[in-house]
Computed example of a mutant assay.
Amino acid sequence: MYIAVKGGEQAIEASRALLAAARRGDEAVAELSVEQLAGQQRLAVSRVMAEGSLYDPELAALALKQAQGDAVEAAFLLRAYRTTLPRLAFSEPLDTDAMRLQRRVSAIFKDLPGGQLLGPSVDYTQRLLDFALLTPGAPLPALPQAAEAAPEAESGNALAALAAQGLIEPAVPPAGDPEPPDITRDPPRYPLNRAGRLQMMARADEGWLLGMGYSTQRGYAHTHPFGGEIRLGHVVVELVPDELDFAIEVGEIELTECQMINQFVGSASAPPQFTRGYGLVFGHGERKAMAMALVDRVLRADEFGELKTSPAQDQEFVLPQGDSVEASGFVQHLKLPHYVTFESELQLIRTLREEQAARAAGAPQESRP
Rank of each mutant, 00 (worst) to 15 (best):
residue 215 S to W: 10
residue 330 F to Q: 14
residue 109 F to M: 07
residue 326 E to F: 03
residue 90 F to H: 04
residue 129 L to S: 12
residue 82 R to L: 04
residue 178 P to I: 00
residue 6 K to T: 13
residue 256 T to H: 01
residue 361 A to F: 03
residue 26 D to R: 13
residue 33 S to K: 15
residue 73 E to V: 05
residue 274 F to C: 00
residue 189 R to M: 14
residue 275 T to N: 08
residue 180 P to C: 06
residue 233 G to Y: 00
residue 264 F to D: 13
residue 236 V to T: 15
residue 333 H to R: 11
residue 25 G to D: 05
residue 316 E to G: 08
residue 272 P to G: 00
residue 282 F to G: 00
residue 153 A to I: 10
residue 266 G to C: 06
residue 231 R to L: 15
residue 165 Q to A: 09
residue 351 T to C: 03
residue 10 Q to M: 06
residue 90 F to G: 02
residue 298 V to C: 06
residue 176 G to E: 10
residue 156 G to D: 01
residue 306 E to Y: 11
residue 142 A to H: 05
residue 259 Q to S: 11
residue 206 E to L: 11
residue 294 L to C: 08
residue 94 L to M: 08
residue 86 P to E: 11
residue 348 L to Y: 05
residue 16 R to E: 14
residue 66 Q to K: 15
residue 236 V to A: 11
residue 356 Q to G: 09
residue 291 A to P: 07
residue 174 P to V: 05
residue 204 A to H: 07
residue 236 V to C: 01
residue 157 N to R: 07
residue 75 A to L: 02
residue 144 P to D: 07
residue 153 A to K: 11
residue 67 A to M: 01
residue 229 E to S: 13
residue 275 T to I: 11
residue 263 Q to Y: 10
residue 336 L to R: 13
residue 240 V to Q: 15
residue 255 L to S: 01
residue 330 F to M: 09
residue 238 E to M: 05
residue 110 K to E: 10
residue 359 R to F: 11
residue 56 D to E: 14
residue 140 L to P: 03
residue 129 L to E: 10
residue 10 Q to E: 08
residue 331 V to P: 03
residue 284 H to Y: 08
residue 90 F to C: 05
residue 209 L to A: 06
residue 48 V to H: 02
residue 252 E to C: 01
residue 101 L to R: 04
residue 264 F to Y: 14
residue 230 I to D: 12
residue 153 A to Q: 09
residue 53 S to M: 02
residue 191 P to Q: 13
residue 348 L to N: 11
residue 317 F to H: 11
residue 302 D to W: 04
residue 17 A to V: 03
residue 325 V to Q: 04
residue 267 S to D: 11
residue 97 D to H: 03
residue 273 Q to T: 08
residue 82 R to K: 14
residue 36 Q to M: 07
residue 145 Q to V: 15
residue 17 A to T: 09
residue 49 M to A: 10
residue 346 L to F: 10
residue 71 A to Y: 02
residue 191 P to F: 05
residue 188 P to M: 12
residue 292 M to S: 04
residue 150 A to L: 14
residue 242 D to K: 12
residue 232 L to Q: 15
residue 266 G to I: 07
residue 210 L to S: 10
residue 119 G to I: 10
residue 342 F to R: 09
residue 334 L to Y: 04
residue 44 A to Y: 10
residue 92 E to C: 07
residue 67 A to R: 02
residue 44 A to P: 04
residue 42 R to M: 14
residue 286 E to R: 05
residue 259 Q to A: 11
residue 37 L to G: 07
residue 91 S to Y: 00
residue 295 V to M: 05
residue 98 A to Q: 09
residue 208 W to R: 03
residue 285 G to N: 14
residue 4 A to D: 14
residue 88 L to H: 08
residue 204 A to W: 05
residue 318 V to G: 15
residue 232 L to K: 14
residue 102 Q to M: 09
residue 71 A to V: 07
residue 170 P to G: 00
residue 325 V to F: 01
residue 45 V to P: 02
residue 185 R to H: 10
residue 113 P to T: 02
residue 86 P to V: 06
residue 318 V to C: 12
residue 152 E to D: 14
residue 149 A to Y: 04
residue 184 T to A: 10
residue 202 A to C: 03
residue 220 Y to W: 14
residue 344 S to R: 14
residue 113 P to E: 05
residue 155 S to A: 13
residue 142 A to W: 06
residue 12 I to R: 12
residue 223 T to F: 06
residue 237 V to H: 06
residue 363 A to L: 09
residue 191 P to N: 07
residue 237 V to Y: 05
residue 129 L to F: 15
residue 169 E to G: 01
residue 172 V to D: 05
residue 252 E to T: 02
residue 185 R to A: 12
residue 285 G to R: 02
residue 291 A to S: 15
residue 312 A to L: 09
residue 313 Q to P: 08
